[in-house]
C-alpha cells in the first residue's frame, strides 16, 4: 500500500502526469488568451496537447553530426528532473514528501531542465544551436541572481535559524500569518519573481535563446519528432512549476482541508499568475537583445529583489 501510494505520488499526483497536464493546460490558456487580446479566436485550449501528440507521431531524425546518446538523452533528463521538482512544491496544505523540500534543491533541479536543453542543443552540432546555447546560458546567468535574492528574502522572512530553506516551513508560516504577498516588504520580491518567470520558461520578451525568426529556434533547431515533443513538454512543465513556485512562495496559506479542492484552487491560481506574468508581458512586448536582457535582470529585477531583502533584513 505504501509503495503504491509512493508510485501514485511520483507518477500521477503531484508528479509527472499532473505537472505535464497542468503545464499543457496553462500553455493552452496562454495561447487562447493572447489570441483574444489580439482579437483573434485562437486555438482551442487543448492545442498544446495536440502539438505534443502530433510530435510523438513524427519521425525523430538524429543528425549525422550529433552524438546520439546525449542528443536523445537530454530531453529525458530534463523531463525527469522537472517531474521531480513538482513533488517538492507544496500544493497549499499538501506536500508529497513532507520534510524533504528545500529551496536550493528546487533551484538546482530547475537548472537541470535548462542544462538539458543546452547540452542537447550543443550535441546536435549545428552552429545555430551554438548561438542558441550561448544565449540560453546568458539568460540563465541573468535571472539566477534576482532569483537567488528572492529566495533568500523569503527564507529570511520566514526565518528559522536552522531550517533556513525549508518549503514546508514557508507553507506553515503562511498558513499561520497570511500570504507573504500581503506583507508589504515582500512586494518588490514578488514583482521580481513575476518578471523572472517569463525568462525561466523562455517567453517573449525573454525568448532570445529560441528566437525562431533569427536563429531558427536555437538549441532546438535539429530536434524533431518525439525528442522535440519532450522539450515542448518540458517548457510547459516549467510553466506549471514556476507559477506553482510563485503560488506557494507568495500566495500560500489557503487550506481547505481536502486535497482535491486544494489542487483545483492551486491550478486556478497558477492560471491567474500565468495570465499576469506570461501572457500580458508576451502580448505587449517585442524580443530583447541578449545584452539588454542581462542588464535588465542584473539592474532592475535584482534591484527590486535586493530592496526586498534589505527591508526584510531590517526586520520589516
Amino acid at each position: 500500500m505504501q509503495i503504491l501510494l509512493f508510485l501514485v505520488k511520483v507518477l500521477i499526483f503531484p508528479g509527472a502526469l499532473f505537472t505535464a497536464c497542468v503545464g499543457l493546460f496553462l500553455a493552452g490558456i496562454d495561447r487562447k488568451v493572447i489570441a483574444h487580446m489580439q482579437k483573434r479566436i485562437g486555438p482551442p485550449i487543448r492545442q498544446p496537447m495536440y502539438d505534443f501528440f502530433k510530435l510523438m507521431g513524427k519521425e525523430t531524425i538524429v543528425p549525422a553530426r550529433a552524438n546520439k546518446l546525449v542528443f536523445l538523452g537530454a530531453p529525458i533528463a530534463g523531463f525527469i528532473s522537472l517531474a521531480i521538482v513538482m513533488l517538492f512544491i507544496p500544493i497549499f496544505g499538501f506536500t508529497a514528501f513532507s520534510g524533504t523540500a528545500d529551496l536550493i534543491v528546487i533551484l538546482y533541479f530547475l537548472t537541470i531542465g535548462g542544462v538539458a536543453l543546452i547540452v542537447g542543443g550543443s550535441s546536435s552540432g549545428s552552429p545555430y544551436a551554438g548561438i542558441g546555447i550561448s544565449r540560453e546560458m546568458v539568460t540563465m546567468m541573468s535571472y539566477e541572481l534576482p532569483f537567488v535574492l528572492v529566495l533568500l528574502s523569503v527564507a529570511r522572512k520566514v526565518g528559522g535559524s536552522t531550517l533556513a530553506f525549508s518549503m514546508n516551513q514557508i507553507a506553515d508560516y503562511q498558513a499561520a500569518n497570511g500570504s507573504l504577498l500581503f506583507s508589504w516588504s515582500m512586494i518588490p520580491a514578488a514583482i521580481a519573481l513575476l518578471l523572472i518567470i517569463p525568462a525561466e520558461v523562455g517567453m517573449q520578451p525573454f525568448d532570445v535563446a529560441e528566437a525562431e525568426t533569427e536563429i531558427c529556434e536555437g538549441p532546438l533547431i535539429e530536434y524533431s519528432g518525439a525528442a522535440l515533443g519532450m522539450f515542448k513538454l518540458n517548457t510547459a512543465m516549467k510553466m506549471c512549476i514556476m507559477t506553482g513556485l510563485f503560488t506557494s512562495l507568495f500566495l500560500g496559506g489557503i487550506r481547505t482541508g481536502t486535497v482535491v479542492c486544494d489542487a483545483i484552487i492551486f491550478v486556478a491560481v497558477c492560471a491567474v499568475v500565468t495570465l499576469v506574468c506570461i501572457t500580458t508581458i508576451h502580448a505587449v512586448t517585442a524580443r530583447l537583445k541578449i545584452e539588454h536582457l542581462f542588464k535588465f535582470y542584473w539592474t532592475v529585477v535584482s534591484g527590486l529583489a535586493l530592496a526586498s531583502l534589505i527591508l526584510v533584513w531590517m526586520g520589516l
Binding site: 507521431g57 519521425e59 538524429v62 531558427c216 519528432g225 518525439a226
Partner: peptide
C-alpha cells in the same frame, strides 16, 4: 508502449544523405 504508433528514431548511415545533414538554411 507506443513503438508501433510512435514515429521511428532514425540515425544516419555511412553514406552522407541530405536528410541527416545539419540545417544551414
Amino acid at each position: 508502449l507506443g513503438t508501433n504508433e510512435r514515429g521511428k528514431i532514425l540515425t544516419a548511415g555511412e553514406k552522407p544523405e541530405a536528410k541527416y545533414a545539419t540545417f544551414f538554411s
